[in-house]
Design a protein around this nucleic acid. Sequence first.
DNA 1: CTTAATAAGTCAAGTGTCTTGACTTATTAC
DNA 2: GTAATAAGTCAAGACACTTGACTTATTAAG
Lengths: 403, 403
Amino acid sequence: MNDSRPIRAKSGTNHEGTSAHNRRVMIDALRINGALSRADLARATRLTKQTVSNIIEELERDGLVSSQETVRRGRGQPSTPYGLVPEGAFAIGLQIDRHVTRAVAVDLVGSVLVRDEAGLPPGGPSNGTKVILDLVAGIRSKLAGIVQQSEKRLVGLGAAMPGPFGVAGSGDDPWMMEAWQKFPLLETLTAGTGLDVGLQNDAAAAATAERMVGAAHGLDHAVCLFVGYGIGAGLILNGELYRGTNGNAGEIGMALLFADGKSTPLEHRASLASLYQHLSVDPADPHLYAHINDLALRGDQSIRAWVEAAAVDMRWSIHLIETLFDPQTVILCGSAPEALVNRLIAAIGPLLPSIAERRGRTLPRLQPGMADPWSVALGAAAGPISRAFDPRFAAILKDSLQS
Amino acid sequence: MNDSRPIRAKSGTNHEGTSAHNRRVMIDALRINGALSRADLARATRLTKQTVSNIIEELERDGLVSSQETVRRGRGQPSTPYGLVPEGAFAIGLQIDRHVTRAVAVDLVGSVLVRDEAGLPPGGPSNGTKVILDLVAGIRSKLAGIVQQSEKRLVGLGAAMPGPFGVAGSGDDPWMMEAWQKFPLLETLTAGTGLDVGLQNDAAAAATAERMVGAAHGLDHAVCLFVGYGIGAGLILNGELYRGTNGNAGEIGMALLFADGKSTPLEHRASLASLYQHLSVDPADPHLYAHINDLALRGDQSIRAWVEAAAVDMRWSIHLIETLFDPQTVILCGSAPEALVNRLIAAIGPLLPSIAERRGRTLPRLQPGMADPWSVALGAAAGPISRAFDPRFAAILKDSLQS
DNA sequence: CTTAATAAGTCAAGTGTCTTGACTTATTAC
DNA sequence: GTAATAAGTCAAGACACTTGACTTATTAAG
């Protein structure tokens, strides 16, 4: 009996895990509800007043929360609300797109403090790595100029780029996203910045952003349909981003549609790439974003035609998302001109019938999210903040504790 | 400032939560790996030998694990493996289908000890409730005749029926599944049995079964495509069944397919219901199952035609599941005749290209699961066992602790 | 104005569960 | 026969939450 097969098991937990969880629960509660008193926190978390007091004291020492003015609420001693301190933690978010890379510095509550972008030369990682590392270095030094102790309070760097990861692709993309997808980006960024680095696809980043400061704030189940150069879905399931086995969950752009006996990926019909092709414009044109926004605002005929066609496919995508994920709401967002997203939303309705149609709904089935070229970078930055501060199963387990 | 808005927060945890988690982790490790020594468990769970010893001792007292013969593994003191005791816990599983209801008693390791079924009269809950409660009572008394203390070790009753739940339906189903879906089944079963009752849709139950004793055993991300009277997907995400906001996640049968300008739910094209219609047979015929199995085995022409057509839609369903969930594998199962499922699997291949095609795969993209009229009832029973013994986030939180 | 009711928050001792480090036991390798 | 190695135990210790009494601050009511 050769007993060298690896034993698979979840990790156990201990006091530290308990405490780490409770800290995270407090921070989460303050993020969702705004400032709360110790007594409020004790009731909401089911912990004792004493425990809450101890943890709040510790969080205050760590500069993550601070007390506000006391509030009189009827009989009894007035309560002292505690709120998150925005400058308690920072994260850098990095978006790598086809022709451009964007970086932001974000604080604990999701405000963008610094932002910068740079053009990405063609040629993939071999030409782009330095540009990216310089951009990140610049953001860090600008952040250090604005706030004290920023480097000490930097919890990590989140990177976002179009997926899918680790999949053999078509190889016909001159902007080399495939090269980026194969490139050991995590290792390169870790080595180049010394930070804790995470990587997700752009739709996931958009969902993370919506969860921290947008329409998915405080929701347990929400799906962001993200329209960028491609199209993808960012999945918030059970209050956490769902990544799938290889970080590719939600890559709805690769879903095949069948029509007229041929199959076409959704991405070829409903994405900025398809719009650019429809309009015969150069995707690398730096003024394209504003130009498209203009056209959309003016109701340009050519845009309208594309919107009408894309809306049909997106209506179906939303139907499918509702059917498979049963979310509380679907959020349409994008790194696409806002006017375009608004036209899309208008054209998508009314939605197809689905299990989402039920009595007693409080949230709309479809709502607009951020449509902003910076939302992906923001979401990328929200990743490390969430990893560091949000309550989640993995944070309780011993193998994640090393504080 | 009216401050009566409810405060939303996750619950905190304490020592009991820690301990509950560690107990569950041990049980899970023994379930996945088979019998393990205390030292093995300590290494796998990252807990200390002492902690493991204490917990094992407690689990042994509770009759959930027992020691086996010592094993010599080279130098050092021989180890004493501990394994799960099958009769350490039981659960009742109940399937409510259109024309029949089935119930099983299952033990801690997922063996079916007792099974029984009864025809369901037309008319929905008003006529069927008594049949169901009698069936469950019969199962319980038979179980009590086989094993000692079965009632004390009964952790709950899991019920499964076709979804979706809580959705306005078409109202054209003479077998009144819609009436069942609206009926307060949970309350009725709780009152009628005195047990802790859970409810899920049949595809979710099938997935739960595959996770406990089938092809999804020990996997973190797997999707079961379940072919029954309808068709649905049971989702294992992050090692747990994913239910969605209203327990309707995975209802892929309601996904609309567009062809020739019309939309049709997948269910109308790939499900036993569609097969029955194709064959013009009576779905209430009790011999239908064996009959279909026979036809499938013999390669009947009419079945082949349906299989070919359904396989096209199922191939697409699998592609979509891979694209949206990025699972380790997709499992095709059903409460459908096994020969039919085998024909379907044969006809579905080769699969469509998707993100699941990657170098270094170890699991097949599609594999057969249970195709057995009893698998849904088994999965229904696996629900309470999983809730009681599997490690999960919710089990750590204070609001779930009352032991 | 005085007193009772109410609620926030603190204090100090208590409890439960994991950890630590030394020790015992059983086996194989040399 | 002895050393090395690994399983498992013992007893004390540490840590984080809990308990219950107490203090403080405010409003409601007579």
